[in-house]
Design a protein around this nucleic acid. Structure first.
Lengths: 141, 141
DNA sequence: GTGTTATATTTAGCTTGCTAAATATATGTC
DNA sequence: GACATATATTTAGCAAGCTAAATATAACAC
């Protein structure tokens, strides 16, 4: 499109993010998870029995996306759904034993990925980078 | 997962990138394009009549993805396909007049998005950011 | 209680990605 | 020329995203 610094940044961001995703996706497949499902599970590891709307909020995605992810995770035996007793509209999501067991291995993969991404970047630079990222986040919201 | 700086960066990267994508996607819908299709067209604006394999290379994605994107763009009248005369295996992709007309508006949207992402970040900081992004790119490859 | 409005989830249908397998055509070898 | 191998593309099937529309239940108003 054009070749100034700004453009490089936007493109780089895209490239890094999609490469990171591809990489991590491959890594997660060893645990029979798809990329993004780890985020959903991470929320449940903090405390399960939450509703799909709460998952939407946490994952910053739309209800149909959660429906599909939950369906897939349920079919693979990592979670199960139970209708709320007080309010029949809401589904509450719980971890199975299989789902609970994934916490440590996922944490390991996550750290591995992080290390790969940042290994040549010093602690001081990481702070600067974090600051810049946060500012970009704010710019977009 | 955990709450140190490194983790923030990886998560921030994901957040910024997906927010940027969502934003840009919405913006492109006004031109009847889906996000990612602008990249494919951008390659054609540099010169069309290239093969799907060349598009794969440029977009860094797999052949079936290009097949689908090309199909969608063709149905919407932005490109057309012609079988190569010398080698009947390859399809060559050309811009229609409609497709050519999109170059300027897409460029405008792209710059708008860039400005939004970076507006609070100084030129010096942009250079630092670019350097860090490039290093992360290298770490992943 | 009936009717309206709000909320939670699902369904249908689309695009971007992927992988694995199928198809078609070229090319190189004997 | 026949056969094996390589290359370009497509098909099928899956997941993450989305939007728009459907469904089910709750809650509120009268």
């Amino acid at each position: 499109m054009n070749d100034n610094v700004d453009c490089d940044i936007r493109q780089s961001l895209d490239k890094v993010s999609s490469q990171m995703r591809r990489d991590y996706s491959e890594s997660l497949r060893e645990l029979k998870l798809y990329v993004g499902q780890d985020n959903l599970l991470a929320r449940l590891w903090q405390g399960d029995g939450i509703t799909q709307m709460q998952l939407c909020e946490h994952l910053k995605c739309e209800p149909p996306t959660v429906t599909n992810m939950v369906k897939s995770l349920e079919q693979n035996g990592f979670i199960y759904r139970k209708r709320d007793e007080k309010d029949a509209r809401v589904m509450r999501i719980y971890l199975t034993d299989e789902g609970k067991k994934l916490e440590d291995p996922v944490d390991f993969k996550w750290k591995q990925q992080q290390e790969k991404l940042l290994h040549s970047i010093s602690p001081e630079e990481r702070l600067i980078l974090r600051d810049l990222m946060k500012r970009m986040e704010k710019n977009l919201s």
